[in-house]
Design a binder for these strands. Structure first.
Lengths: 195, 195
DNA sequence: GTCTATATCATGATAGAC
DNA sequence: GTCTATCATGATATAGAC
């Protein structure tokens, strides 16, 4: 049963993949539904049938990728115990993800969702980011991280890494992100560590 | 030579102010030239006369704000000596600027210029950011900052502050940025300090 | 230099056959 | 569910009077 449908991939994912590629390459507004239709090899009518309108397509993409990110955080919290190890693992995984799936990362934390998803909250207050702040708060309660405003702590702990990711996505970093992992993490942890 | 034109503000600045406001509020693509015309109280024809096309208007905005940022850095470098003092002063000034001129800050480091200014390099490789990296490199040469990749150092030193600024622009920080200055700066400097 | 009116065109979205 | 053909809207940009 698994290998039977090789002839044609599922229409929805075909469209979502094309949309992700075009939205991140050219931007949401510079991409027409006809462009997506051509790239995906799916008719305009089918796209509207599945997603309602262009914004619905963007929303589907957003929720899909957000869910994937939450899943990643869950996995890390199951595997690691201390805030230190969890945070380091998260940065590691994000760096790898940026290299293997740059469009997904770009859409998650670089796209201006406010402009085309007006009802969606800003990324930083989305659920994955809330989960990350909780992780940091527990670290303060456990004495691993210095006492300070929770928002400040999580921003300072991950700010450098996130900027490295956007720099890489912009093409201004010569080497793959994992190359810089040790140096970046040393800085990040020094910023907030209790000791 | 200088016509005392106090009666009516210069058309160019009238248009640039309106464009900045609308671009940052609604986004570049959601803003039509007619919107700008209405908000500025200047006809569409005049706008095209002065800026050529919509993209030319965005470019004028971009270069104006970039120049202002360079001027700020110059001023700081004249006033302060050590990398520590310069970096701290820069963060201080950026925090204040975010409160007093949020649109200008949003346009500088939050807008996706790539989408509407395809020929412009990404913000992080623009001249202000290059100047900041030089500042950090000198700090390493002087022994104030630990030896590491220059890009990593400047990203980790300013990454947290920049994320705080974008968080504030997104409206998810309850207090004005200067409230958080001491905590943020302590983290930032610990991240890269030599001692 | 500034204005109004208009030309041109691409886009989001729909209709309706299969 | 998928497709082609088409509509309606609103955008950028221009023409030409003042």
């Amino acid at each position: 049963m698994p290998e039977i449908a090789v002839q044609r991939e599922d229409t929805r994912t075909l469209v979502l993949d094309a949309a992700l590629k075009l939205f991140t390459d050219r931007g949401y507004f510079a991409t027409s539904v006809h462009d997506i239709s051509r790239t995906a090899g799916v008719s305009v009518g089918s796209i509207y049938h599945h997603f309602g309108d262009k914004e619905g397509l963007a929303r589907a993409l957003y929720t899909t990728l957000t869910a994937r990110m939450l899943q990643l955080i869950d996995e890390i919290e199951r595997q690691m115990d201390s805030s230190h190890d969890r945070a380091r693992e998260l940065v590691t995984r994000l760096f790898v993800l940026t290299e293997t799936q740059p469009q997904a990362m770009a859409f998650m934390l670089y796209a201006r969702h406010r402009e085309f998803l007006p009802d969606e909250p800003p990324v930083c207050s989305s659920r994955p980011f809330a989960r990350i702040r909780e992780m940091v708060s527990r670290g303060m309660a456990r004495g691993e991280i210095r006492q300070m405003d929770a928002m400040v702590a999580s921003t300072c702990l991950f700010g450098g890494s996130i900027r490295m990711i956007t720099a890489r996505l912009d093409g201004i970093l010569p080497h793959p992100l994992p190359t810089y992992l040790d140096e970046v993490w040393t800085c990040a942890w020094r910023a907030v560590a209790a000791s």
